[in-house]
Nucleic acid binder design. Structure first.
Lengths: 221, 221
DNA sequence: TCAGTTTTGGACTGAGAAGTCCAAACGACC
DNA sequence: GGTCGTTTGGACTTCTCAGTCCAAAACTGA
């Protein structure tokens, strides 16, 4: 933990600093807190968080009045980083390609051990702080479901999919196909990280199954 | 919870006792521990467990040497209660009916708030005790997946399903279709308990989607 | 250089919980 | 009724952790 120079909270003075000191104290704390909460759950001690952030306990308490406050601030900040899983996908592509891509993205990001650890922490915390589970659901799965559902409805209007009108349930099912046990295994700690070829295989398979179930005859095979 | 007779640990002597004393101390403790751990996570105090079991702290420690031991004993006992989700299903039925039934069972049992609470607890504990997550997976999801996969393979041999040979992945996908977001919502505490009609709707839908994707042409519609 | 602010380390308080100990009460069995 | 093992309550020890306090050091801006 050798260090050289410390920085004030507000200025961006240039100097040779260790990476962990580049950001402001607040940002550093949030980052460290995210990591510690993710890997140890809500039970990490504030001491440990302070140490990880390379900051004194007092500074930690100056920035965030309490553990709960820190935790919620961390959640709020991280929430923003989780969005837009589906943006920038045009309508012009074949539904199968689009779906494959969504699955691929999901596997590489949302199902990574890192993200699963975060998810596990949220699940644990949502017992103690129900509003956190709700907020996570709103910002994460729910938003993704809505985007997916809207996309499906659009494709249906174009005659390229046929879900019998229930695009919402179809979207849930597609997400279900993707996560199918992968998430569960990760949450229980028996997850083996997927190799790229496995990701590719599963992503294609998901899209294929979905298309078989919901594609119009013309696209079937 | 009216009761009549109480038992000593070893004998079955009859007497008028309070309801909570009907079972042996050990059994009562395990039951209370399951409930407390389920609703409060691993963080419940041993005091609270003892109180819930209507037993002194010392007796608790006489039966189970430590909190960890109690926790694991409780898991081991509950594990047995979770099996056999799929047994006793004959091969004679139409695959669609079988699948609908599986989904129905899953919704009524595995997705109940009670079971979800238990699942959440296991997830939380599997961070602290990785072997617990693994044990749960082996006894629960994995076993169910294997049964399902074997059934699918059999149906495939009979020409009533066609998964292209990957019955294991197909089984995972079917489970994925069932849980699709239901479990996630439950874990995050935003789950609204499903009404019977909703269960029925979803169960049928799951089976329908699976059949569309994996049923042979003759069964398609 | 100097005044004002922030950070730091470290000691401290208070609460809660794991686990132990013990004397008294209880229950089972003879 | 008497004996032996168990249960009980409750006091007790030890630990960990959230959160506070404070005096000394470091940094900032002028």
């Amino acid at each position: 933990m050798g260090n050289v120079i410390a920085m004030s909270r507000n200025s961006a003075a240039a100097a040779t600093l260790s990476p962990s000191q580049l950001a402001s104290a607040k940002a550093r704390i949030l980052e460290a807190a995210a990591e510690m909460f993710r890997t140890h759950g809500y039970d990490v001690s504030m001491e440990a968080v302070a140490a990880a952030a390379n900051v004194s306990k007092q500074t930690l308490y100056n920035q965030f009045g309490s553990k709960e406050e820190l935790f919620k601030a961390m959640i709020a900040e991280r929430g923003a980083a989780m969005r837009a899983p589906l943006k920038a996908h045009a309508l012009v592509r074949h539904p199968r390609d689009m779906l494959t891509d969504v699955a691929r993205q999901y596997y590489t990001h949302a199902c990574s051990p890192h993200e699963i650890g975060y998810y596990r922490m949220i699940i644990g915390a949502s017992q103690q702080f129900p509003e956190i589970g709700a907020a996570y659901y709103e910002a994460g799965p729910k938003e993704m479901l809505e985007e997916l559902s809207n996309w499906i409805a659009r494709e249906e209007r174009l005659g390229r999919l046929d879900t019998g009108g229930d695009s919402k349930l179809a979207a849930e099912h597609f997400l279900g196909l993707i996560t199918a046990q992968i998430e569960a295994r990760g949450l229980l700690g028996v997850g083996t990280e997927m190799q790229p070829t496995e990701i590719e295989r599963r992503a294609r398979y998901c899209a294929e199954v979905f298309m078989r179930a919901f594609g119009p005859e013309s696209l079937l095979r």
